[in-house]
Design a protein around this nucleic acid. Structure first.
Length: 631
DNA sequence: TCGTAAGGCGCC
DNA sequence: AAAGGGCGCCTTACGA
């Protein structure tokens, strides 16, 4: 096996793996090696192994339903297969078979790659608990799913292998294993194929790492590792509050269902079809949309809402049910120590932002109580600990101004003036010495809506909508048109940034990859640029989207703001702080209560330390202590 | 019976 | 010429 020499992420595909001869009696011991058997000395030289576990899953037992911890400890859990692969010029190592028969000691002290390492690490540690993997073994985990995501490829192994090597792989056998045990596979005669599949996944994982690892920076690897650790560590839960919340929501759900006539027949509560039918019955029109911000729906509610409470009840049901399901998920995942772990994808978005995962998304928990139920309050520090919660002030708006080269804005920020006020002073004719927020609240809100809404190219129609959501403003379409034009005319630095990005993007038409450099040194990769009827398009994360100047400016801004948070997370970790959650511009740090005073100052200092690569951008943060998660 | 698309809604 | 963006999870509807 030749080591990869071409480090470009867009080089030509690797050859297919050599077929590895598997023992026909899979069940007994599938210890298959290709080429020559290894000597003791050779095996010590190895540094990188790839590993892939196969486990039982089905409708009743899966990670979404149980969470990773309980998934691996359920009565029906089974880690039935492991594939391990490593390549060297002088011979490969390959094993696939029962975990019990693997020679685990050879991995000690080495790097272990896995595609979704959080899962494989959890399997590995579970096997250590069970005494199958030696408890004293230490390995250094690397996640290739995180790595390929960071380099702009699709996250799944299938998508990554396709994007990186141009090879299409089938996941059919894994799909076939749903609701099936290892014994089932043996009976069905597909055990050997399953083994080959398992080992081949490890093989692909190994080669993804070999090919791309040099492009993935140490900082990013560390962030990937910290994300894994943070999710496994989890958060403590106030179980009493949780139980009360469930009861309250059940009452709301019950009441809402009582107001919806078709529910009596056991029909779907939220069915738009049945709503329409019911409206027909009473000779009234049905709302076109049921969305809460839809004008049509608001009008319907005003006219018919009192007499026909169905729409309101459907809305209540939907909200209460969603929240209820979140509580159930939390409850199901609570571990014996009172904590629950959650999923968070490092580099879930193509800009690099983290995103939620596996059935419970910590990034979209309701900010305020719903129906008297405050989910955030149920997330609490471990006994003897306190939360320090800190969020960055207007990070994206600040970053956008910095990227646009708005030095005047930087000077204003340095004086402690907010982005919104500085914007009003620079481009909306505000000149008083008084702070704008108090002197003219209406102008301040408009400034806020402009800064939040218009920096990425929104047109008048969109501005009408988002001005309401972002700043609570009611604006006519005519007003919006004037505001949009005026904004673009007086914020040339921003419109120039759009144009610059669009030009750079267009120049790369037909090229395999447009690499957009970020101030941090990281890049965003847009692949296979092409012209479509909808405009210029490119692939990110293995999917095709259209792009234009404003959208690219948003990507660039979002990615840079994400890197600011990444830098902060690294600094908090280096200072010994335990981050238990982070949400785009916000961190929740758990500290021993007796250390809370120094920690508060430390966290505030770290949050407002500008990265060296973003020199000149003043950061602000709001940092508080709390006995529960809140915002 | 399954997977997926679409509408709705939660967050930054 | 014009175009906010980025996510995930709930349910229902629909088609293979």
């Amino acid at each position: 096996m030749k080591p990869e020499t071409n480090a470009s992420p867009d080089a030509k595909p690797n050859p297919e793996p050599k077929p590895i001869v598997l023992n026909a009696m899979f069940d007994a011991n599938l210890n298959a090696r290709s080429d020559e058997p290894e000597t003791e000395e050779q095996s010590h030289k190895k540094k990188v192994f790839a590993i892939d576990f196969e486990t039982y899953y089905g409708n009743e037992l899966n990670i979404d339903s149980h969470g990773l911890y309980h998934y691996l400890r359920d009565y029906n859990s089974s880690i039935y297969l492991v594939g391990v692969f490593s390549a060297k010029e002088d011979g490969n190592f390959a094993y696939v078979g029962k975990p019990e028969a693997m020679d685990w000691k050879i991995l000690d002290g080495h790097t272990l790659c896995a595609h979704n390492a959080r899962f494989d690490r959890a399997c590995f540690e579970r096997l250590q608990e069970l005494g199958i993997v030696p408890a004293e073994l230490r390995v250094n985990w690397v996640c290739t799913a995180d790595m390929v995501s960071a380099l702009g490829y699709g996250r799944s192994l299938k998508a990554a292998v396709e994007g990186v090597f141009g090879i299409s792989i089938s996941k059919d056998i894994r799909t076939d294993m749903k609701d099936r045990t290892w014994q089932d596979a043996v009976s069905l005669g597909i055990a050997e194929e399953l083994g080959r599949y398992c080992l081949k996944d490890a093989w692909y994982c190994y080669h993804l790492y070999a090919k791309l690892s040099s492009l993935w920076s140490d900082k990013e690897r560390k962030l990937s590792e910290m994300t894994r650790d943070m999710c496994d560590y989890g958060v403590y839960v106030d179980q009493k509050l949780l139980a009360e919340g469930k009861q309250k929501l059940l009452r709301v759900i019950d009441e809402a269902m009582g107001k919806i006539p078709w529910v009596e027949d056991g029909d779907p509560v939220l069915s738009p079809k049945l709503l329409k039918k019911e409206c027909n019955k009473y000779g009234i029109p049905a709302p076109v949309s049921l969305a809460q911000f839809s004008d049509d729906c608001t009008a319907w509610e005003e006219e018919y809402g009192d007499k026909y409470p169905w729409v309101g009840a459907m809305r209540d049901y939907r909200k209460a049910n969603t929240l209820y399901k979140k509580l159930i998920t939390m409850e199901n995942r609570i571990r014996p120590d009172g904590t629950f772990s959650y999923g968070l994808k490092y580099f879930g978005a193509h800009t690099g932002r983290w995103s939620g995962d596996a059935g419970f998304n910590i990034q979209n928990l309701p900010r305020v109580p719903m129906f008297g139920v405050d989910l955030r309050k149920m997330i609490v520090p471990r006994p003897g600990h306190t939360f320090i919660i800190s969020d960055l002030g207007q990070i994206e708006q600040r970053v956008l101004s910095w990227l646009a080269g708005d030095n005047n804005m930087m000077e204003e920020l340095e004086k402690g003036i907010s982005v919104y006020e500085a914007h009003a002073r620079a481009t909306m004719g505000y000149t008083d010495s008084e702070p704008l927020k108090h002197a003219n609240p209406d102008l301040y809100r408009l400034a806020k809506a402009r800064v939040l809404g218009l920096g990425y190219g929104a047109g008048a129609n969109v501005f009408v909508r988002i001005a309401k959501i972002l700043a609570g403003l009611d604006i006519s379409l005519l007003q919006a048109k004037r505001i949009v034009n005026e904004f673009r005319a007086s914020n040339r630095l921003i419109t120039k940034l759009w144009a610059k990005l669009e030009l750079a993007f267009n120049i790369n038409k037909g090229k395999p990859c447009f690499t957009l450099p970020l101030p941090s040194g990281r890049s965003i990769y847009y692949r296979n640029l092409a012209m479509t009827p909808k405009g210029m398009s490119a692939e990110v994360q293995g999917k095709r989207y259209t792009f234009f100047g404003g959208k690219l400016a948003e990507n660039l801004t979002s990615a840079t703001a994400r890197d600011v948070l990444g830098e902060i997370l690294l600094n908090l970790d280096a200072a010994g702080y335990r981050v238990v959650m982070h949400i785009h511009d916000e961190v929740v740090v758990e500290v021993p209560t007796e250390k809370v005073d120094t920690a508060l100052k430390d966290v505030q200092r770290i949050m407002t330390t500008t990265p060296t690569w973003l020199e000149g951008l003043p950061l602000t943060a709001e940092t508080t202590t709390s006995t529960f998660y809140t915002k």
